[in-house]
């Protein structure tokens, strides 16, 4: 589904991604973890071309992301993305946030879009909030709306960029629950997160990145059992203490 081959990226002379190669197969959940500044968010943003990369190749389905002629809006409309800071549009009601791209990109009618949006809101347990503005919702609720907004496009795969990092602790689970359900339904997911509990329960594979490199790319059992690299062991020992 998502194929990342030898991808390198520079900011000026600083190399943020070093020859990264990995893949996410259909229906798989891959968790990307690593210390901050390791390039994991940058890598995931390269997948839907929010960040350009200078070397290597990324393909989603059979579309090459980096190729010059690629219709990026079309590509992105097939890949859902959830951001650390939710990024709901504050000037629109919740329902309009979810309707917007259905109407403007998928050319759905307002009625069809609204029906689908309400169904998705129900799925994330927020149908009562449809007429509110995002600012009136809690962080956890906003992130669930953001997930619904991404799902409204019927994405082939979902990218999550630290979806729980900006949340108060008591709201993390309501978002992880929605993600867990998605994973169980067979959604292809690439998730940047520090939630190792989620990774342990849901992920098929775990990728560990450090300083722009993919240091470890292993099955979940292997990763949490005996991570081979010293850096991954060190990271895990720090993050799993609490």
């Amino acid at each position: 589904m998502i194929e990342i081959k030898n991808v390198s990226k520079w900011y000026g002379s600083f190399q943020v991604l070093k020859n990264c190669t990995t893949r996410v197969d259909e229906g798989q959940v891959v968790v990307v973890c690593g210390p901050s500044g390791s390039g994991k968010s940058t890598l995931i943003k390269c997948v839907n071309a929010l960040e350009p990369f200078q070397q290597g190749e990324i393909t989603v389905g059979d579309i090459s992301v980096g190729a010059p002629g690629t219709d990026l809006p079309n590509l992105r409309s097939h890949i859902g993305m959830v951001f650390q800071n939710f990024e709901l549009f504050p000037h629109m009601k919740v329902i309009d946030n979810i309707n917007l791209a259905q109407i403007k990109v998928l050319k759905a009618s307002t009625e069809v879009a609204t029906e689908k949006s309400m169904a998705l809101l129900k799925r994330v347990g927020l149908e009562a909030q449809a007429q509110k503005h995002p600012g009136q919702l809690s962080g956890g609720q906003q992130q669930r709306v953001a997930i619904a907004r991404a799902l409204a496009m019927d994405p082939l795969a979902m990218l999550f960029d630290e979806p729980t990092s900006a949340l108060d602790p008591e709201m993390i689970n309501e978002v992880l629950d929605v993600m867990t359900e998605l994973a169980k339904e067979g959604m292809t997911m690439m998730v940047v997160t520090h939630e190792m509990g989620f990774a342990r329960r849901i992920a098929h594979r775990v990728i560990f990145m450090d300083q722009g490199e993919i240091v470890e790319d292993a099955k979940k059992e292997d990763f949490f059992g005996t991570p081979r690299s010293e850096r991954a062991q060190h990271f895990l020992s720090k993050i799993l203490q609490h």
Binding site: K45, N48, L50, L72, P73, N74, R76, S77, H78, I79, G80, M81, F83, N85, E87, L88, F89, L100, A101, K104, V105, R149, A150, M153
Partner: peptide, 21 residues
Amino acid sequence: PRGQVSAAYALGLTYRQATTL
């Protein structure tokens, strides 16, 4: 915020749509 632009693009909106909407 920059993230609003990213979110608009991530949904598949074009530059024009992201700007005007």
